[in-house]
């Protein structure tokens, strides 16, 4: 009983700094993780422009500029999504243009 109360107390206590954090930095971290994993999913079809945005996002975050970091991560995610779509499309499409099929 006391233990349960204590647990609630702790989690409340913890949730305060978390809530304070749930701003640009957290948004950035989510977005960045998503952009990174989508970029990875492009496999051998990754785009250099995505890599560039990811690095720019990282260095902006290192400098504490989370607005810029978020904007870069968002662009990276969109580009990465296009590259994944390209990879999927090319799985079949290449045959239509190949000499010798």
């Amino acid at each position: 009983m006391n233990k349960a109360l204590l647990t609630i107390g702790i989690s409340l206590g913890l949730s305060v700094p978390l809530a304070a954090q749930a701003g640009p930095e957290e948004d950035f971290n989510d977005l960045f993780a998503k952009a990174q994993s989508t970029h990875k999913d492009a496999g051998t079809f990754q785009w250099t422009v995505t890599s560039d945005r990811l690095s720019a996002a990282e260095s902006a975050a290192d400098n504490g500029d989370y607005e810029k970091a978020k904007a870069m991560a968002k662009e990276a995610l969109e580009l990465a999504e296009e590259s994944v779509a390209q990879r999927k499309k090319q799985q079949e499409a290449w045959r239509n243009v190949a000499i010798g099929n």
Binding site: F45, W47, L79, S83, Q86, Q90, A93, W94, V97, A98
Partner: peptide
């Protein structure tokens, strides 16, 4: 190797073949 040569890649969406074939 053949698939690589004929698959479009990159933001410009070109395959090796787009240019060299």
């Amino acid at each position: 190797g053949k698939e690589f040569y004929y698959s479009r890649r990159g933001q410009l969406n070109f395959s090796c073949a787009s240019c060299h074939v």
